[in-house]
Amino acid sequence: LRLEVKLGQGCFGEVWMGTWNGTTRVAIKTLKPGTMSPEAFLQEAQVMKKLRHEKLVQLYAVVSEEPIYIVTEYMSKGSLLDFLKGETGKYLRLPQLVDMAAQIASGMAYVERMNYVHRDLRAANILVGENLVCKVADFGLARLIEDNEYTARQGAKFPIKWTAPEAALYGRFTIKSDVWSFGILLTELTTKGRVPYPGMVNREVLDQVERGYRMPCPPECPESLHDLMCQCWRKEPEERPTFEYLQAFL
């Protein structure tokens, strides 16, 4: 395994491009020591290896001592969030954005069929390849993070704006909380990567959403798509659509 080009840095580690087995181009995620327990990670990795779908980033291998390494397929255009905010983002029109959403829903419909939960679905965790191919990455890892700023769910590192209220408040993460996050991801797509709930801080978002506030229809977004977002944001988790439905609708 060779680490060649550093692609990015996040709160919990770095991402590199490299070569595996001398020939395969891969992405390598390294986790800061202390982010998660190697034992817990190894268990999760076994499950992650079983998830194989064309719209999920394929896991190739893991190094399960500290520092933990995760070796996955390489996606040339990086994260969907950076892609939307970058040069190419300007030229993306609604049909392409909807197609990308459908690809993500397709990957998540598979996660749904496998009775698995992602827990951290957002544009930053979707990767883009050639020809606007989108794949879901980092599934299941969020559960293992041991950082206090994260586990408190009120901490600075927790993605509260993407998280369903029952998950943020009571830790009830299910495929239905993933559906909520998918609704937020749809706003990221239609606004080219704007942060959700602009002008609001995490605490406010939690309070307002509890009181029934939902983001309005983004500019140039059809009402039918906003309606779909609002279905994803129904207060009762069981009233939210399935990913199978979302995939078919898109």
Rank of each mutant, 00 (worst) to 15 (best):
F243I: 15
T174Y: 15
L132S: 08
L84Y: 06
E239N: 11
N202Y: 04
R234C: 11
L92I: 13
W180H: 06
E166T: 04
V117E: 00
S181Q: 04
V26A: 09
R119V: 08
F139T: 00
R240V: 01
L94F: 07
V133R: 14
Y110S: 06
L31Q: 07
M100R: 04
M200Y: 09
I68Q: 02
A109N: 14
R214E: 04
W233K: 02
V62G: 04
E14A: 05
A105S: 13
L250R: 07
T187D: 08
P165S: 11
E236Y: 13
Q9H: 10
A45P: 03
V136M: 05
Y170N: 07
I175K: 15
T24L: 07
I68G: 09
N148E: 10
V63A: 10
L56M: 10
V57K: 13
S64P: 04
M200T: 07
D99R: 15
V57Y: 10
I126V: 07
E210D: 08
L246S: 06
K77L: 11
C221K: 02
E220S: 09
L144Y: 13
V209M: 08
G107W: 00
E244S: 12
K50T: 13
V15D: 01
R234V: 08
A45N: 02
G13K: 01
E44D: 00
F41E: 02
A27D: 01
D120G: 02
G89W: 10
Q208I: 15
N202Q: 06
T151Y: 12
R93G: 07
K235D: 10
A164L: 01
T30Y: 15
E244Q: 09
P222N: 05
D178A: 03
P198K: 06
A156K: 04
N202R: 04
E54L: 11
E87Y: 12
V71W: 02
L84I: 10
T151E: 06
Y60L: 13
T88P: 12
K32M: 07
D120V: 01
S177I: 06
E130C: 14
I160S: 00
E210C: 09
A142R: 00
V98L: 08
R153Y: 05
I184A: 06
I184Q: 03
S106M: 11
Q43G: 13
P216Q: 10
F182K: 01
A101S: 12
V26Q: 04
V62Q: 08
A27R: 03
F243M: 15
G129P: 05
P222K: 08
W233V: 05
G22N: 10
R194K: 08
S37R: 06
K29L: 01
Y170T: 08
F12N: 03
Y213N: 05
G86H: 13
R113I: 08
W233R: 00
Q9C: 09
V98I: 11
P196G: 02
E54T: 12
C221G: 05
E87V: 13
T191W: 05
P216R: 11
I70W: 00
K235Y: 09
K135N: 15
A109S: 13
I160Y: 11
L56A: 14
K157M: 12
V47F: 03
R203Q: 11
T242N: 15
S79K: 03
P222Y: 08
R203C: 11
E112V: 15
E236T: 12
T174E: 05
C217A: 13
M75D: 04
